[in-house]
Nucleic acid binder design. Structure first.
Lengths: 215, 215
DNA sequence: TAGATTGTTAATCGATTAACAATC
DNA sequence: TAGATTGTTAATCGATTAACAATC
């Protein structure tokens, strides 16, 4: 059973925003904050912040507000960013490598445990401390290391096949950079999918810019 | 004045999905499609599809449905993906390079016209056909080439300064990969911001996976 | 205690879905 | 013409905002 069954996707997606914002506040030495001040900084309404937080518990105190570091810890716990779920990267192209080098998988709930690619000219190279392995070894690796999630940076054409293979091997979450909506595939089964459609994001910007500059 | 002033962000963000899905259908040789069939494939409801499309015009025909290639063209036009707005990339680290090499800026409304970085060891290298230039040259470059948009792949700490410099030089849109919410900064001014919070996206997945696997 | 600010309920707003008349 | 499916209006649903009593 899910710990927070009633929580909407809207609220879920705001949690990381709160978390990061609180991190900044700690950095700046802020100890307490009211929903009103918080709202100003983060760009939501005070009502929404209080409403959101109360999905998970009463972390504030009337007349005082919220203790920044307490709230930070609480949201971190809710997000489970202190976990180290074993995760793998499939597809060590430009984007995949950028994610490994640029992003901290750790401190975001995951621990990278393997990198896989199909391209023989990449296999064997060391990336972010890990040798790139042949995708053919992926099945055996999963049986041994039981990765919980996978970052999918393979070409669109390979997305479905790779995803299905991983699900058969116990992977329960995808950070999906392909353009195949995997959440459609796994609606029934218990697989979490976070789609990152970079192409769509750029096209959205195109639309917005055009709306702005075309008279 | 905006061409489509009443269109919500919700609808806007679905447009690229429609566009890509139609592309796939064309590839598969599908000529016509009803909102019902389309809904099945894309994972929305038929009502929503018809509602969405009618924000922009009546592209269908009663009793027939939608002509796939006509609809594809129409949505492409609405999104302005056939434009070639001059755009630059600032920050040629792993992520920036991945975007240049992996993404097609062209065919998504933009044309990359320059790449900038602060790091002397990167400056001068050729990436995606363009030499990486010193950020110090950015002002002069903007005056000469008038880029309309910028992909921001600089460290968080540099985000605000770079963004402000670019806005002063006429940039009207940001594809923002930093964790500073630029849309907060330019609420009043006419600057479009598409925030891509990869870290938040990964934390969201962490939350979803935890909800799934913790009993 | 008095002032401040939460937690929570009620009101509003917007987005999605359902229904159906218009029409190809 | 009859069948199918749109465009569009009305109903529902969910998310955001406002309000205020509870309480630190």
């Amino acid at each position: 059973m899910a710990k927070y069954p009633g929580v909407s996707m809207m609220v879920t997606r705001r949690l990381p925003r709160y978390y990061r914002c609180l991190e900044d506040l700690i950095q700046k030495g802020v100890e307490r904050i009211s929903s009103r001040e918080f709202a100003q900084i983060i760009g939501f309404t005070a009502s929404q912040i209080r409403q959101d937080l109360n999905c998970f518990g009463g972390f504030g105190q009337q007349g005082y507000g919220y203790n920044v570091s307490v709230l930070y810890q609480e949201i971190g716990r809710i997000l489970s960013v202190d976990r180290e779920y074993p995760a793998i990267l499939v597809g060590a192209g430009n984007l995949g490598l950028a994610l490994v080098n640029h992003m901290g998988f750790q401190q975001k709930g995951f621990k990278l445990t393997g990198i896989f690619d199909k391209n023989p000219s990449i296999i064997g190279k060391i990336v972010g401390g890990w040798p790139v392995c042949d995708v053919e070894e992926m099945g055996a690796f999963c049986k041994a290391h039981k990765p919980v999630a996978a970052a999918l940076c393979v070409p669109d054409s390979a997305a479905l096949e790779v995803a299905e293979r991983l699900v058969r091997n116990g992977v329960r979450g995808f950070w999906n950079f392909t353009h195949h909506d995997l959440s459609l595939l796994y609606k029934q089964e218990d697989v979490a999918v976070e789609n990152v459609y970079l192409g769509d994001s750029l096209m959205t910007l195109t639309f917005l810019v055009t709306e702005l500059i075309e008279e």
